[in-house]
């Protein structure tokens, strides 16, 4: 069991959870993820590491409530049943900062994708690399942790679909305008956003790293649920990724594979809402 230090709402449907898990973060490097289970019978939920404090042994996660399992997670205040990690491979730039000292790097984050972007930008900032960030969301109130990312990003630009903050439009609009300023792009967010970024950078032949978050069960290579098509071949996001060359990922397939359990999940979500609703009525 892992002690929950805090688990609080930070926007309409996003939560930040801080957990005491010293062994899990002892070796973590940004880009890696964990798998958490709220209770003994919960689903295994993969979440990218958002922040950590190695001195205090604290791991921070940001998650969005999108279904029954994340809803359950948001109600747990005391202890988590399981936290396994760090899983997957570190981000290539963070792992070899020296090799990227002279590169002009831009991070593109979409929505809750800022959670995995933040530790990378923070880490690179600490290593003396200046990194720009383009951050987009549907609307201003869905832009998360702005104060934190602004502290570590060299330059930050915002885009919102409705124009309520920053540029009205998409992150790709800002990126395209400034495309000549960058040698490397790291894009993390909804699959459709990563696809659009990768298509854009491909035109300009700019190296692009994306972080995939497919369905996953064990997270150690045993089940193959998380397979993605990379360069025409199946790769497991859990042990070969989660970050891949954005120009080699089959995003259309990734988008379709996210729907495998759509019906089953909807059913569970409805069941849960019914139960919750029932309780509220009592």
């Amino acid at each position: 069991m892992y002690k929950i230090i805090s688990n609080k709402k930070i926007s309409e449907n996003s939560y930040e959870m801080i957990i005491n898990a010293p062994l899990v973060i002892e070796k973590c490097i940004p880009g890696q993820f964990v798998i958490v289970m709220g209770k003994e019978d919960s689903e295994r939920i993969p979440l990218t590491i958002y922040d950590y404090n190695k001195d205090r042994g604290e791991l921070s996660l940001i998650y969005q409530v999108v279904g029954a399992s994340t809803e359950e997670l948001s109600t747990i205040k005391d202890k988590l049943y399981s936290v396994a990690g760090p899983l997957g491979n570190p981000n290539e730039i963070c792992l070899n900062t020296e090799d990227f000292k002279d590169k002009r790097i831009c991070y593109v984050a979409g929505g809750v994708g800022i959670a995995p972007v933040y530790p990378q930008v923070k880490y690179l900032n600490e290593k003396g690399l200046n990194v720009d960030v383009i951050y987009g969301a549907r609307s201003a109130n869905l832009l998360l942790i702005r104060d934190k990312i602004e502290k570590v990003a060299h330059k930050i630009r915002y885009a919102t679909d409705d124009g309520s903050f920053g540029t009205k439009g998409f992150v790709t609009d800002i990126l395209e305008k400034n495309i000549n300023d960058y040698d490397i792009v790291v894009a993390i967010g909804p699959v459709i956003m990563m696809k659009n970024v990768a298509e854009l950078t491909k035109k300009y032949n700019i190296k692009t790293i994306v972080s995939m978050n497919p369905l996953m069960v064990d997270g150690s290579g045993m089940c193959g649920a998380c397979r993605c098509e990379v360069d025409g071949k199946p790769k497991f996001a859990c042990i070969h990724g989660p970050e891949f060359d954005g120009h080699k990922i089959n995003f259309d397939l990734a988008l379709k594979r996210m729907n495998i359990y759509k019906e089953e999940e909807k059913e569970k979500w409805n069941q849960m809402k019914k139960t919750l609703g029932g309780l509220e009525n009592e």
Partner: peptide, 27 residues
């Protein structure tokens, strides 16, 4: 890579480790 192609390990893990065969299972 179609939706509906699984490894036997995935099917078995969901059922055995995660108890997906039970009515109230979360996985």
């Amino acid at each position: 890579d179609a939706n509906g192609v699984f490894s036997a390990n995935e099917i078995l893990t969901r059922i055995n480790l995660m108890g997906a065969y039970k009515e109230d299972a979360k996985t």
